[in-house]
Amino acid sequence: MRADARANHDRLLAVAGAVITEQGVDASMRDIARQAGVGLATLLRHFPAREALLEALLRTNFDELTARAAEVESTSPPGDALRLWLRDFVTCTANYRGVVTSMMQAIEDPESALHNSCVTMRAAGTRLLSRAQDANLARADLDGADLFALASALTWLGDQPGLETRADHLFEVIVSAILTDHAG
């Protein structure tokens, strides 16, 4: 990619991240382009659809969550690792208002630009859940899809007006439903 094209690409991602953080995933593509100081055609040349832009923004975050799962898996007891990763998942995905719906749709749609990132991230969480289950620290009747749905629900709760202040409490409620009494 040419240097000016790379600069436009990077500026578009930075601006899109800020705009989507503020306005949510349905933010105007035209507004993103305008705030980045480029035309809509330039934005669409780099990101031909909103989902492609979201995928580019989220891929790095999802890759970091996948790496974080491996890190906590190797450094923390199973229950603690699962709790830490769930907290990181909620924190990361809460950065972009409204992303939960896009993630839930993408994981079911192999044609989605977000699909591979979501599947890889869910697999990382599933490994942590399985490890906690093997140690008899997590409910045996949950699978990776359940964990992804519950983690996504936690993010959604934080997006709801009036529930932001309850998010930490609700996180603990959900985690206590996932982890058994044997977890510490």
Rank of each mutant, 00 (worst) to 15 (best):
T60D: 15
L57P: 05
V38A: 13
V72T: 07
T75N: 10
D63K: 08
R68N: 14
R68P: 00
D80V: 11
D63T: 12
D63G: 14
A81P: 01
E73I: 01
E55H: 14
L43T: 13
W85A: 02
W85N: 03
R34W: 08
A70W: 14
F89C: 02
R50P: 06
L86P: 00
T66S: 06
L57F: 08
P77E: 13
E64Q: 12
T42C: 00
G79Q: 06
L65F: 09
L57C: 02
A49H: 13
L84Y: 14
V72A: 06
E64A: 15
A81C: 03
A41R: 11
V90D: 10
R50A: 09
T42W: 04
A70Y: 13
A36L: 07
D88Q: 15
T75H: 14
T60Q: 14
L53G: 04
F62H: 13
F62C: 07
D80L: 10
T91V: 03
F89V: 03
A81R: 06
E71C: 01
T91K: 09
P77Q: 12
R59K: 14
D63S: 11
Q35S: 10
A69Y: 01
G37R: 10
R68F: 15
A52L: 13
E71N: 00
G37E: 12
L54H: 12
A70C: 08
A67Q: 07
L86E: 04
R68L: 08
A52Q: 15
A56V: 12
L82V: 02
E55W: 04
S76V: 07
T60I: 10
L43F: 10
L86M: 15
L43G: 07
F89N: 05
A52T: 14
A67L: 07
P77V: 08
R50V: 02
G39H: 13
R68E: 15
R87Q: 12
E71Q: 12
L40E: 12
E55I: 01
T93E: 05
L54A: 10
L82R: 03
W85T: 01
F47T: 06
V90S: 03
H46A: 13
L58M: 14
C92V: 10
T42E: 05
D88R: 15
E64L: 05
T66E: 13
T75Y: 05
L54G: 03
A41Q: 14
R34K: 09
T42G: 02
A69L: 03
V38R: 02
T75V: 07
C92W: 11
E64N: 09
R83C: 01
Q35E: 13
H46W: 08
L82P: 07
P48F: 07
C92E: 11
F62E: 11
R50I: 04
P48G: 09
D88I: 02
P48R: 11
F89A: 05
